[in-house]
Design a protein around this nucleic acid. Structure first.
Lengths: 144, 144
DNA sequence: TATTGTTATACTCTATAACTATA
DNA sequence: TATAGTTATAGAGTATAACAATA
C-alpha cells in the first residue's frame, strides 16, 4: 500500500534525501544567479552552454533540453536577437538549421561556467580521498 | 583571471560536479513526473507540499518558494479552484491570509511524496555505512 | 507610515496543433 | 509520405508597479 511506504524509510535515508534536496536547491540557485548576471533566463543559459560545445540542429536542441521543438524557436530567436547565437544552413539537408554560438556567445558561455562556483567552493573542503569516495557513492546511487 | 579558473579544476572535481548535475537532473525529472501524475505543475506541487506541514501566510509562502508575493496569489488560486487548498483569516492580524491544505490536499501531498521514489530506489544499493558516509560528505559539502 | 495581499501588465517557457519547405 | 523548423494559441510562472485594507 503506497501510503505505508514512507514509514519504511529509515531516518538516515530520509536525512540523505533531504541533503540531496538541499544540493539540488543550491545548484539551481547558483545556476539561475549566474544566468541572471548575464541577463539570461535559465533556459537560455542551458541552450547557450549546450551550443558552446558544438553547433546543433534545432531538433537536437529540443531533445537535449527535453522540451518541444516549437519552444526552441523562441529561445534561439531571443539569443539570436542579442547576437549570442546564429542559425546556419546544413549543407547536407536543407530542411535543417544549425544553431551555433557567435564569438560573443562563446565568451558569455565561458563566463557563465566560470561563475558556476558550485564546481569549486562546495567541494573545496573535501580531500582527494573524500572526493573519490563521494564520486563512487554518487555513481552507485545513479546506476542501479 | 576568470577564464583561467576552469583549467585549475582537477578532473576528479569535474567528475563529481558532473555527477551532481546528473543527480539534480534526475531529481527534477522525478519530481515533475510525480507532480504531473496529479495534474500539478512543479510550483503547485512545491507549494502544496509546503502547506501539508502547516498553514502559512501568503507572504511566508513567497519567501519559501523564493518568488514574489504576487505570484503566490495565482498558484494558490489554482490550487483552491481544485479544492486542494483554502484561504483562512488570521485572527491575530486581519491583513494576513493563511493558506492551508484541505483534506483532499493532504491526500494528494502524501501521495506525491510517496511517488518520489528518489527517496528509495537510488539509495537502495547503498549499505548503512555507505549512507552514513554519503550523508557526512554531503553535509560537509553544503556547510563550508 | 508601513505591511499584507491583490490586481494589472509584460515577458518567458511550455505543450499542442497546423503550416511550409524540403526529403 | 515523412521530417525539420516555424507559427499560432493558450496556460502557467515570473518580476514590477500600483492599489485597498489593515496595522
Amino acid at each position: 500500500m503506497a501510503t505505508q511506504r514512507t514509514t519504511r524509510i529509515d531516518p538516515l535515508t530520509l536525512e540523505v534525501v533531504d541533503l540531496i534536496g538541499t544540493v539540488v536547491a543550491r545548484y539551481h540557485e547558483e545556476y539561475e544567479d549566474a544566468a541572471a548576471e548575464h541577463a539570461l533566463t535559465g533556459a537560455q543559459a542551458r541552450l547557450l552552454s549546450l551550443l558552446s560545445l558544438e553547433p546543433l540542429p534545432m531538433r537536437r536542441l529540443a531533445q537535449k533540453l527535453k522540451c518541444e521543438p516549437s519552444n526552441v524557436t523562441g529561445i534561439v530567436d531571443r539569443l539570436e536577437a542579442r547576437g549570442l547565437v546564429e542559425r546556419r544552413p546544413d549543407p547536407s539537408d536543407r530542411r535543417v538549421k544549425l544553431a551555433a554560438t557567435t564569438e560573443e556567445g562563446r565568451r558569455v558561455a565561458r563566463s557563465l561556467s566560470d561563475a558556476l562556483n558550485f564546481a569549486r567552493e562546495p567541494l573545496a573542503g573535501l580531500s582527494t580521498e573524500e572526493r573519490l569516495s563521494l564520486r563512487d557513492l554518487l555513481q552507485r546511487m545513479l546506476t542501479p
